[in-house]
């Protein structure tokens, strides 16, 4: 492989990884936007999404097959189910805490994370579950660069979801209300906006996006387990901060940037891949030093 091939291949790798980060980061950033909560349970919602998608695919796989069609269907079901799980989590765990000090709700989020993780741990016994699909390894070679069909579908699906979200937030009434709630909840109430409902919609969408990522990741990588949400939760949070937490375009960009940084960080000459996180997190520190609100964040104005 020539140097150019290697870099181009890492670009592809970074895009795929970045798509996952971006989908999860979007939930972080939207929830932070409306209730100023760092939802540490979000990575575990992603994990639940993977398991629900797996369960659905196991049920319907015999009928519709376990190719991308079946995966898309189970992803859709998982998005709806986990979206409502997100609403339930908000209603049970976060809603009563909205008026409480910020620290209390943060600790509640950690508790929710532990509840979700340990429930799945208890159900699966901590074993890895193989996510069987009949996705092949096929793809196209452009020079020395190899792009699998799976990677193309994956990035394509992520792009469609993000476009849909962008349209929803900018073009619909609910989207407008969501942006308004992120600016000033009390004023929204005075203007007749049902803030409680808007918060629920935000959790629905954020959790659904994480579930989509979870199902796709399970199918693409081929295994799921109860702890799979931890690391990606951490990375997606980082991505949201790089992009500017509270900013939707920021989360998309942040996810892709972090994915690319990790891919290229692996390739730095003379040092091994164990330094890639040092590399990408150093960039995070630099971003925060020079632009504390993140790349797309604005300090005081609108945050959605």
């Amino acid at each position: 492989m020539t140097t150019f091939d290697i870099l181009a291949q890492q670009l592809v790798n970074g895009l795929v990884l970045g798509s996952f980060y971006a989908l999860v980061a979007l939930g972080y950033t939207m929830i932070f936007g409306v209730i100023k909560l760092l939802n540490f349970a979000h990575g575990d919602v992603y994990m639940i999404g993977g398991f629900v998608g797996f369960a659905v695919l196991s049920l319907v796989g015999g009928l519709v097959g376990t190719g991308w069609g079946g995966i898309a269907l189970s992803m859709f079901v998982s998005m709806i189910a986990v979206g409502f799980l997100g609403v339930v989590i908000e209603r049970i765990a976060y809603h009563p805490m909205l008026a409480a000090p910020r620290l209390s709700i943060l600790i509640t989020a950690l508790a929710v994370s532990l509840v979700l993780q340990n429930s799945v741990l208890a159900l699966t016994g901590g074993e890895f579950t193989a996510f069987r699909t009949n996705l092949g390894f096929g793809g196209i070679a452009l020079g020395g660069v190899f792009i699998t069909y799976n990677q193309m579908v994956l990035v394509g699906m992520a792009a469609i979801l993000m476009l849909a979200l962008e349209t929803f937030v900018t073009r619909t009434q609910y989207g407008r209300a969501m942006r308004a709630v992120s600016i000033d909840k009390d004023m929204c109430r005075l203007m007749g906006i049902d803030v409680t409902k808007i918060i629920a919609v935000t959790f629905l969408i954020g959790s659904a996006l994480a579930a989509a990522a979870g199902t796709m990741a399970g199918a693409y990588y081929g295994s799921i387990w109860y702890f799979m949400g931890f690391l990606i939760g951490l990375k997606a949070f980082t991505a949201a901060v790089i992009g500017g937490i509270g900013s939707i375009p920021g989360a998309m960009a942040g996810g892709l940037i972090l994915g690319l940084l990790e891919a290229f960080g692996t390739q730095i000459p003379f040092i091994g891949s164990e330094w890639k996180d040092v590399f990408s997190f150093s960039i995070l520190i630099l971003v925060l030093v020079f632009k504390p609100t993140g790349l797309f964040g604005k300090s005081e104005v609108e945050r959605m």
Partner: peptide
């Protein structure tokens, strides 16, 4: 060296 639980090793496999 890779992180435990990191699902994506594509950057490493390319290397």
């Amino acid at each position: 060296t890779v992180n435990k639980g990191e699902q994506d090793y594509s950057a490493l496999t390319t290397k």
